[in-house]
Nucleic acid binder design. Structure first.
Lengths: 111, 111
DNA sequence: CGATTCCTCTAGATTGTCAAGAGGTGTCTG
DNA sequence: CAGACACCTCTTGACAATCTAGAGGAATCG
């Protein structure tokens, strides 16, 4: 199967927002975030580890999330990420911007 | 002025779709497209010539638009761009994908 | 034991957009 | 008439986010 037609590429610039939102529900490890997003999006987005992990690093460097090694229900070591207060604010800001922008795009698309 | 807070950056990957839509209304020159988009978006998007022109070139190479030098109402020479049938299809496809993706994002954001 | 699932992590390439600026041509104004 | 301004195209270089394509390790299951 050489790359499905409607592939699951995400809209550029939304990954961090989606991660923030996912982590706002509850702290999780990276792999879990990926699964969540894929699930909730109905399979539209398939988040790649090669996108996810760098994003999480960025976000940690920026102080929006904090991480901690813990062990899974399955007895495995995994890095759990959680939102910081700053991350919560960032989520609000980014969501708001997203709404503004998509509204503007919708306006153009309906013209 | 070191870059305004809520700047007019567009969502990555949407420029071509917006251009296609704008040209679907009527053929225009590049500058006109930029003005239109800025107007209709309520000033949210400020399209940069350095983004617009390369995009139009790409699209012409791809066969989605065709161009022609004509003169403006103001007696100036300008390159007028119009949609090809292929461009019309591309607009439909991209719009549909956009809807799918934003719907998926909305689903996550509401979770 | 070997295969599979879970989970993290990195390197390299690609791509779309941006900032900045050059240049050219009509039109208005002092 | 000179200079400023508005219109319009086009190029260059840099950058940031994502993707592909891996490697590697540890628990579990047949």
């Amino acid at each position: 199967m050489p790359k499905q037609e409607a592939n699951g590429d995400l809209v550029q610039g939304t990954l961090e927002m989606l991660i923030l939102k996912t982590l706002a529900l509850e702290p999780m490890h990276g792999y879990g975030v990926a699964l969540r997003i894929e699930q909730i999006s109905g399979g539209v987005f398939r988040v790649n580890a090669g996108s996810l992990l760098p994003a999480l690093s960025r976000m940690e460097r920026a102080g929006n999330v904090k991480s901690e090694w813990r062990s899974t229900e399955n007895n495995r070591r995994a890095k759990y990420y959680g939102l910081t207060p700053k991350g919560r604010k960032a989520l609000a800001t980014e969501t708001e911007q997203w709404e503004r922008r998509t509204a503007a795009i919708a306006r153009i698309l309906e013209a």
